[in-house]
Write a protein that binds this DNA or RNA. Structure first.
Lengths: 229, 229
DNA sequence: GTCTATATAGGGATAGAC
DNA sequence: GTCTATCCCTATATAGAC
């Protein structure tokens, strides 16, 4: 007598599962080894599937990258909170930055060879620039809100330059820290990303700090003191 | 009767000339196309020599990169002037930064894939970190001099964070600007690098500016107003 | 010093069996 | 969906003639 097949309901198909596994493992390998150093063969090996199977699920390596980038683009859509009172604005900003750094960390392979990656794919390039554009707008809007709340003192030129520097530091901070990293000897797991992220937030806040006034300034200084290593 | 051979004096040998030409053309191609996109074949083609000939002069592509890096390392050794009076300190700093950006520009291929480049060659990595270390020290010393001259107001923590941010912006500014660049359609020559360099100086100075006092602040603001585009 | 010819290796990608 | 086998192409690097 036939065994009733187990209820499959909303379980993903075997195919979908393999597809997801490919994306997940690719992301992990890209982040750890650098995208250029990871071949389709490596990915297949890691998954114990054949290269042919991988190419059944993705036309080519670029398509994998595109999917990962689409994920990244989506998680980066989050916008900062509106400014209410000056003090909590600083906490909001701190948390927002931390979230952004976490997400950049999760897809850090994109930033490792940003120039090459975007140069060889104009679609990625334009999408990345759109993300940057949104962040620039958000930062400038935030400054104007702080200005209106008398929590900041800065000219328009200063705000423009500040926003640009915030973008540069936020974009490249993790890269910059990685330059100092010892070449990883063994299988030592990434040592505590949290430290890099918090340091990134700190550095960005250090850009904003000198333009603050009153409560906001005081509150931020308090926050920053707790993060000096 | 024998023709007297022309005076050869200090003329470089044919061999040395080819060697120099290889370095020069490699640098140009690396900067324009990105090092990873330039093969030994491309370099040989551009010079109208054979690949074999190229490998007579350099054991491999890495050796070419090493020589170019050594050149870069040497030109980056320049240190900023000592602080005399506050006003001229600002001009000195401006000029010094401009020189640094010019030199980074001249070897910008190194920065394009910094992470990959340094990851696959630990010697380059350690030398690059030494350069960064020197710049960090120079920046901190400069701040202390400005502090002593009552031209700056900042805590030690602020100076540390400032120096780090100066390094990040100086290191990645040209890269960051390049992200916005339209994909180069034709043989359009690099459009006016000078603009990028000055903008980089401006952005770095914008980091320092909020910590300045008195003459120095006034003088820098005057300098910066002339550079707002 | 320079060239031609070629060896070698690796990665991306496909065809066709199962 | 998955595997095996294989093709193709490109890049590095070398050998040996001139």
């Amino acid at each position: 007598m036939a065994m009733p097949s187990p209820p499959q309901q909303s379980l993903p198909s075997r195919s979908a599962r393999t597809r997801e596994r490919i994306l997940k493992v690719s992301l992990a390998l890209f982040n750890h080894q650098g995208e250029t150093n990871v071949t389709t063969g490596h990915i297949a090996d890691e998954l114990n599937i054949s290269p042919g199977n991988l190419y059944y699920h993705f036309r080519n390596k670029d398509e994998i990258i595109h999917h990962l980038f689409a994920e990244f683009e989506q998680v980066m859509e989050l916008a900062p909170n509106q400014v209410s009172d000056a003090a909590s604005a600083m906490e909001d900003m701190w948390l927002y930055l931390h979230l952004m750094f976490e997400r950049i960390w999760a897809y850090r392979f994109l930033y490792r060879n940003l120039d090459d990656l975007l140069s060889r794919d104009s679609k990625l390039k334009s999408h990345f620039n759109i993300i940057i554009g949104h962040k620039r707008e958000a930062m400038i809007a935030l400054c104007h809100a702080l200005l209106a709340a008398k929590a900041m003192k800065a000219t328009d030129d200063e705000i423009r330059a500040l926003a640009e520097n915030v973008l540069v530091v936020a974009t490249y901070w993790l890269n910059f820290e990685h330059l100092h990293a010892r070449p990883k000897n063994k299988l030592e797991a990434e040592p505590d990303p949290e430290k890099h992220l918090s340091r990134g937030v700190y550095q960005v806040m250090a850009l904003v700090s000198p333009f603050l006034m009153g409560d906001a300034k005081e509150h931020l200084q308090h926050l920053m003191e707790n993060y000096v290593e």
